[in-house]
């Protein structure tokens, strides 16, 4: 077995285990961390498929940003684990139905009838100087320019809308303008008071 194959089976096993752990762990922080592990292992598998840009972007975006915020929220919530487990039996049938439908769909799409080496030839290994990133960039900015830009505009609108919806102006907050703070002079803050030694205080 080649080194790549060993790596593939190793990380595939880690990925499957981590994904099972995500849904079975009781502690939500543990579940979130296993999800991070799952993302990371799938990134390694993509890397083995020579999709280095997608693999590293998966780590950068999902592991480095999305899951950090997720973990942030999960840690701050005081989740009552017992209440979460209470509905397990009640929702089990619905969950099983959804799972079976999804599995069936997956088999239909990527099953042996439409997928696999019999349908498509194995892609030839690219030369060492082949840049995945460059190819993707060229495709996105030439052939798919309009969809790409429209998607970007939609995301921008979504960001603005999300900020607008959660923004609230609280009138009571005290805010000091930083430029005012920077430009403060000694004369604004310091007052020298001359006290003669043994000065007699006059009472009036």
């Amino acid at each position: 077995m080649s080194f790549e194959k060993v790596l593939f089976y190793l990380f595939a096993a880690v990925l499957v285990t981590a994904s099972v752990m995500v849904v079975t762990r009781r502690n939500p922080v543990h579940a979130a961390l296993f999800l991070v592990l799952a993302f990371f292992s799938s990134a390694v598998i993509w890397m083995l498929a020579e999709a280095e840009f997608l693999a590293i972007t998966l780590v950068l975006v999902y592991v480095g940003a999305v899951m950090v915020l997720f973990l942030f929220v999960v840690m701050m919530l005081d989740v009552d684990v017992a209440a979460l487990r209470a509905g397990f039996i009640r929702y089990l049938p619905v969950g099983v139905v959804v799972a079976v439908i999804m599995a069936a769909e997956l088999v239909l799409v990527v099953g042996p009838r439409h997928f696999g080496l019999g349908q498509y030839a194995a892609p030839a290994a690219k030369a060492a100087d082949y840049s995945n990133t460059e190819t993707l960039g060229a495709a996105l900015y030439t052939a798919y320019l309009y969809p790409f830009e429209i998607a970007g505009a939609i995301l921008l609108v979504a960001i603005v809308a999300a900020i607008r919806l959660t923004l609230r102006r609280r009138p009571g907050t005290r805010y000091v303008d930083p430029s005012q703070q920077v430009h403060v002079k000694r004369a604004d803050r310091v007052r020298l008071v001359k006290l003669a030694p043994e000065q007699k205080l006059e009472h009036k």
Binding site: E52, F53, I56, T57, V59, L60, V63, G64, A65, V68, D129, Y130, S131, N132, T133
Partner: peptide, 13 residues
């Protein structure tokens, strides 16, 4: 080839 991306990804972890 993607060394800079790799650095970014790791420093975000």
């Amino acid at each position: 080839n993607a060394g800079l991306l790799y650095i970014l990804a790791l420093s975000s972890m």
